[in-house]
Design a protein around this nucleic acid. Structure first.
Length: 101
DNA sequence: GTGATGACAGGGA
DNA sequence: ATCCCTGCCATCA
C-alpha cells in the first residue's frame, strides 16, 4: 500500500476543528476512501510517534468511543476530548458531531 | 492461493 | 435501547 493513503487520512483528521469530532465514515468519505471506514482505524494505528494527528476526535457513527470503556487508550481519548471542551458521558460524546457539507 | 480479522456502517428484529 | 447480520476492503496468518 502506498503511504499516501495514510497521509491523506491524517490530513483529513487534522482538519477536524478543535472541540468537534467526526465519525470514521465521515473521515473515510472526506479522504476519498468511500466506504472504507475500517481503513481509518488501521491508518490511525500506524501513527508514528511525534505525529500531530488528533486521532481522539475520530469516533464511531453512533457517537461512541471506539475503545472498550476503562481501557488506557479510552481514558486518554476522553481526557483529550474533555480538555477541548467535548463532553463525554458513558463512553459517548454528548456534543453534536462535526458536520462537513 | 484461501480464510479470518478489524479503532466501521447501516439496516432489521 | 440491544443484539445480530451483511457489506466493504486492506491486512495478516
Amino acid at each position: 500500500m502506498e503511504p499516501g493513503k495514510d497521509q491523506k487520512i491524517w490530513q483529513v483528521v487534522m482538519a477536524i476543528p478543535a472541540g468537534k469530532v467526526a465519525s470514521y465514515g465521515q473521515v473515510a468519505e472526506m479522504a476519498g476512501l468511500g466506504r472504507q471506514a475500517r481503513y481509518i482505524g488501521r491508518a490511525l494505528g500506524k501513527l508514528p510517534q511525534g505525529h500531530a494527528v488528533p486521532w481522539y476526535r475520530v469516533i464511531r457513527s453512533n457517537g461512541q468511543i471506539a475503545f472498550p470503556e476503562g481501557s488506557e487508550i479510552y481514558q486518554e481519548q476522553v481526557g483529550r476530548l474533555e480538555a477541548e471542551g467535548v463532553e463525554v458521558v458513558n463512553g459517548r460524546v454528548a456534543m453534536r458531531r462535526f458536520r462537513w457539507q
